[in-house]
């Protein structure tokens, strides 16, 4: 990477994205680019731009029908189907499907559900908590009852750590709100001293912490996703 210092003003990240998409990297360089692609949404966006630029080239590659048995192999490799008895509100599939809609639409749907259910005095606040190009969680705040509902979207459970939710108000200092779940929505009561700071433009963040939560009261693990609260 150091043998061509002059890149004509093109940032190194953009060149790395180009090399990754073109496929010229190997070994640790390719593995590093792959990790960056999975974890850094800015880099993932650069990769997507290069994929788009080179996409017409793929049009030249002839289609070849795969053998029919391949579909059976794929179907067999999928995880077992989930039971569907839990009801749509608790169904991860429902919320994942919902979060796939545009952020505004998903937020509007959730907001409308809460609005119809509670008829709050104030408009609900919502946040799409995103990181690494994924919408990890969707949060809605019911200010009348002082609760926050957080739904997993594309968050995948970590093997050893649990997701913890933080409020970062205007002073920039994270305050712990509670632990989240990968497999279902959780409802958290906002501590009374934080209710006044749970307002539009405050940030919600999710970090990975030891089971039970951060031992220090501040995030100790990586912050994997963030999102700003906005009024509907």
């Amino acid at each position: 990477m150091n043998d061509t210092p002059d890149h004509s003003g093109v940032p190194d990240d953009d060149l790395l994205a180009a090399e990754f998409v073109l496929g010229v990297l190997a070994g640790t360089e390719r593995a590093a680019a792959q990790r960056l692609f999975e974890r850094d949404r800015n880099f993932a966006a650069l990769v997507a731009q290069w994929e788009q630029r080179l996409a017409p080239w793929a049009g030249e590659i002839a289609e070849v029908a795969p053998p029919p048995a391949i579909w059976d192999r794929i179907a067999a490799a999928l995880p077992a189907e989930r039971p569907r008895s839990a009801g749509w509100w608790h169904s991860l599939a429902f919320w994942r499907g919902l979060s796939l809609a545009t952020g505004a639409l998903a937020a509007a749907c959730i907001g409308a559900l809460i609005y119809l259910g509670n008829a709050p005095q104030q408009a609900p606040l919502v946040a799409a908590i995103e990181g690494g190009g994924h919408r990890a969680f969707v949060a809605t705040i019911d200010r009348k009852h002082g609760t926050i509902a957080v739904l997993p979207a594309s968050y995948t459970a970590d093997a050893t750590r649990d997701p913890e939710l933080w409020l970062i108000p205007a002073d920039g200092k994270p305050r712990p709100l509670g632990m989240l779940r990968a497999d279902r929505a959780v409802s958290i009561t906002i501590p009374p001293e934080l209710v006044a700071q749970t307002v539009g433009n405050a940030t919600l963040a999710v970090s990975l912490e030891p089971p039970g939560g951060s031992p220090t009261g501040q995030p100790t693990g990586p912050v994997i996703a963030t999102g700003k609260l906005t009024s509907l």
């Binding site: 996409a55 017409p56 049009g59 030249e60």
Partner: peptide
Amino acid sequence: PLADKALESAQDH
């Protein structure tokens, strides 16, 4: 030649 015209518009190609 463009083998798969349906993939991207001829203009992009």
